[in-house]
Write a protein that binds this DNA or RNA. Structure first.
Length: 482
DNA sequence: TGAAATGTTGGGGCG
DNA sequence: ACGCCCCAACATTTC
């Protein structure tokens, strides 16, 4: 067997949210160093702190790992699957294959930064080489700062600064042509590693998504067909013209720099409004990571004091449940929440509408919404989810002011003018036409089934109550300042 | 990457 | 011709 004669040292490639073989810096590091890479994934619940991946993410993870396992085998290699403490497992595999090094791509979530630092120290204490690489972002969070040396808190100057550096980015890395195989290493089989959901509540996910590196590139190719129209169409949930790359990015099946370089190669598209608009959205992802890195407490508490003293409402669990399950009686909100439940995804415009309803009409603290999205989204990403919710609630950096309260009826009329999106997810409203479908309570006799005949809260009254509450909080804040 | 209230402007109908 | 009103279409302000 070749491995017996091969004198090259072995490096473990500790995979997490970088489930790809192309443009994988940790893997490339091993190859550059003339080392034999062994891919390892460890299911370590403790390493994520209290933001352990939700059920939808795990459904995705299961399929993404299966794809990676198959891709690794196709190159002659393997993917070692382990469960439990990361360090213990790494050390055990190091012993089994007599590895000299462990390489991985960096994570930026607070719990992972802590546990990764401990792992790195412990590996080095044992005389092993341990290196973390930059693989998930265009820019490391510490590489961009204001003239005063502080982290940016406003997107526009952040992205302007990033724009100066975009042209200097190194191109993506290529994949190995082959991978070595190791005979004496124990691991779980892919089928036994993560159980398929029972009952198969995730079946609707895979109509719209195909996890894995190949699925990511197929999705990207599909998106290229309509990226020209992206800027004009991206707010339309009734059109399937967004990239839908977010779960692939969240699991690291594709990287932002692969996307960026691939777009640059498309000469006719590279400077189009649609392309630039999409790249700007990648910028928001970068900005979210930047904020998460510099303000790690923001996953659980307000990033700014803008809403200090605001009287958030006590949660009525029945109403919260109505919101989660798409039974608020407000079509645009319910359609979004049902899309989320069925597909593990929700159109971005509708996420904003649903978040506005929760944090303003219901006046619940954003954390309740962030938790639900965290559990149900296949693209659950701590940086994006946190900043998205803080942005909606008015508590974040560069956030929408709290008084920007969406009217889900006018949002519906504007962005789903035919009612096609709402009709797709709320069959109880099939009898409505475009004119009235976003306010079915004006024709309650047309509503079918047990869909609410009226919204669970009055949109006008709760809007005014939110503004009044904001005014109160404003007084508290100004008293505290004096 | 709001909405609603309020203010302004200008065209047209009408006495 | 003129003032007056109505109202749509915008613009500005406020939360």
């Amino acid at each position: 067997m070749t491995e017996d004669r091969d004198a090259r040292p072995t490096a473990l490639i500790w995979l997490r949210r970088d489930l790809r073989l192309v443009d994988n810096p940790a893997l490339s590091r091993a190859l550059e160093r003339g080392m034999r890479p062994l891919l390892v994934y460890i299911d370590d619940a403790a390493g994520s702190g209290h933001w352990q991946e939700g059920a939808a993410s795990r459904a995705w993870l299961r399929r993404s790992l299966a794809a990676l396992d198959s891709d690794a085998r196709a190159l002659g290699g393997q993917l070692v699957l382990r469960r439990g403490d990361s360090l213990e497992n790494l050390l055990d595999i190091v012993d089994a294959v007599d590895a000299a090094a462990v390489f991985w791509n960096r994570r930026y979530e607070p719990a992972h930064r802590q546990s990764d630092a401990r792992v790195k120290q412990a590996l080095r204490d044992r005389g092993l080489e341990a290196e973390s690489c930059a693989g998930a972002l265009l820019f490391e969070p510490w590489s961009l700062q204001t003239q005063a040396g502080a982290p940016y808190r406003v997107f526009t100057p952040y992205w302007r600064k990033a724009g100066e550096l975009l042209d200097e980015l190194a191109p993506p890395l290529s994949a190995p042509e082959t991978l070595p195989r190791f005979a004496d290493v124990q691991g779980h089989s892919i089928d036994a590693f993560l159980e398929a959901p029972k009952p198969a509540w995730d079946h609707g996910f895979w109509d719209v998504h195909q996890p894995g590196e190949r699925g990511a590139w197929q999705r990207f190719a599909g998106f290229l067909e309509c990226i020209d129209a992206y800027q004009d169409q991206r707010d339309r949930p009734d059109r399937a013209q967004t990239s839908r790359l977010s779960p692939h990015l969240a699991f690291g099946e594709i990287t932002p720099r692969q996307i960026l370089f691939a777009l640059r190669r498309q000469e006719t598209l590279a400077r189009s409004k649609g392309t630039l608009g999409f790249i700007r959205e990648l910028g928001w992802r970068e900005f979210s990571y930047h904020l998460l890195f510099h303000f790690p407490d923001s996953t659980d508490a307000d990033l700014t004091g803008a809403m200090f003293g605001f009287p958030w409402s006590d949660v009525d669990t029945d109403l919260l449940e109505d919101w989660k399950r798409g039974r608020t009686g407000v079509p645009m909100v319910d359609a979004g929440m049902r899309e989320l439940w069925a597909t593990g995804s929700m159109h971005n415009r509708v996420r904003m509408v649903a978040a506005s309803f929760l944090t303003k009409n219901l006046r619940y603290y954003w954390h309740h919404g962030a938790r639900w999205f965290w559990d149900t989204l296949v693209d659950a990403d701590l940086a994006n989810n946190t900043q998205g919710w803080q942005w909606s609630a008015g508590t974040g950096a560069d956030a929408a002011p709290y008084f920007r309260i969406f009217n889900p009826v006018s949002q519906g009329k504007r962005f789903d003018p035919d009612g096609a999106y709402v009709r797709r997810w709320i069959p109880e409203l099939t009898r409505f036409d475009a004119k009235t479908i976003h306010e079915p309570w004006t024709r309650p006799q047309l509503i079918e089934g047990d869909y609410p005949r009226a919204p669970i809260v009055d949109l006008g009254k709760t809007r005014q109550a939110a503004l009044d509450a904001w005014q109160q909080g404003k007084e508290v804040r100004s008293m505290l300042r004096d």
